[in-house]
């Protein structure tokens, strides 16, 4: 029987499509989570301020809940794709550690795009619903028509946040799977890289952590793009180290 030679690209593509088909439920969960949170948000908590002479009542409606839901979901997706079940299933078919890793990144890419677009869109729909319901609303940010660049940059930022969380969590979990003791240096590293972390350890109240500032406080869109891009590439490259060492079907 002659041997079959498969290129890396072919197998990555097939594994990516396989992961999409077998993990379709993961995407569905995102939509359900977003819808539930969206519904809760639009219902809105009534906040009121009443004095003897007048009453002020306002509804603060934000899309933040959906953003948080999507980011939480990204975290879960990052964990799910490192489970031994997922890896073993890939190796039931044709796979190598490298194709497995690359196919997972493709999956993250698509998942992040879906999450980014739907999250930002849900904010737009929210505004529309609020506008139709109340009429008099103050809208803080512009929409697609009013500020198209802002709209798209919000989508890109959301995609990058989602992707960053997935890749970081994924790589972290891979290191932990390779060796459980890896939790210690990684957690220490994270703590040390945040000011507050170090201060908390020392019992001193600090400011916001630097690692958090690094992304969140970045006001330039392009600089943010470069920062997340570089960090993601570094973390992704790091992930190949544990992924090529983890054995399959350890029972």
């Amino acid at each position: 029987m002659s041997l079959t030679h498969r290129t890396m690209g072919e197998v990555v593509k097939q594994q990516f499509l396989f992961k999409l088909r077998s993990n379709a439920a993961v995407i569905t969960v995102l939509f359900v989570m977003q819808a539930v949170v969206w519904g809760l948000m639009i219902g809105g908590a009534n906040t009121g301020l009443s004095m003897s002479t007048f009453e002020l009542r306002w509804n603060l409606i934000t899309n933040d809940g959906v953003v948080i839901a999507s980011l939480l979901w990204a975290l879960v997706v990052g964990v799910i794709l490192t489970t031994p079940g997922q890896r073993n299933a890939s190796f039931t078919y044709v796979s190598s550690p490298v194709t497995e890793n690359l196919a997972n990144f493709c999956f993250f890419g698509l998942a992040a795009i879906i999450a980014g677009v739907t999250t930002v869109l849900s904010g737009s729909v929210m505004k529309l619903v609020v506008f139709m319901k109340d009429g008099n609303s103050i809208i803080e940010t512009g929409g697609l028509i009013a500020a198209p660049l802002d709209f798209f940059s919000r989508i890109v930022v959301m995609i990058l946040y989602t992707l960053l969380i997935m890749v970081v969590v994924y790589t972290f979990m891979l290191f932990v799977q390779m060796n459980r003791l890896m939790i210690v240096p990684i957690v220490l590293l994270v703590l040390l890289s945040t000011k507050s972390g170090v201060f908390d350890l020392l019992g001193i109240e600090g400011n916001m952590g630097t690692l958090f500032d690094f992304f969140y406080k970045e006001s330039s869109f392009w600089l943010f793009l470069v920062k997340t891009g570089v960090v993601m590439v570094i973390v992704s490259i790091l992930s190949f180290f544990p992924s090529s060492r983890i054995e399959v079907k350890q029972s």
Binding site: L3, T4, R6, V11, P97, K249
Partner: peptide
């Protein structure tokens, strides 16, 4: 170990096969 050639040309069957539960 890590070989795509071996993976593409071999199959391993045991009583603990991992299949995606959704399929």
């Amino acid at each position: 170990f890590r070989s795509l050639l071996v993976s593409a040309n071999s199959i391993y069957i045991d009583d603990a096969m991992s299949y995606p539960g959704s399929m």
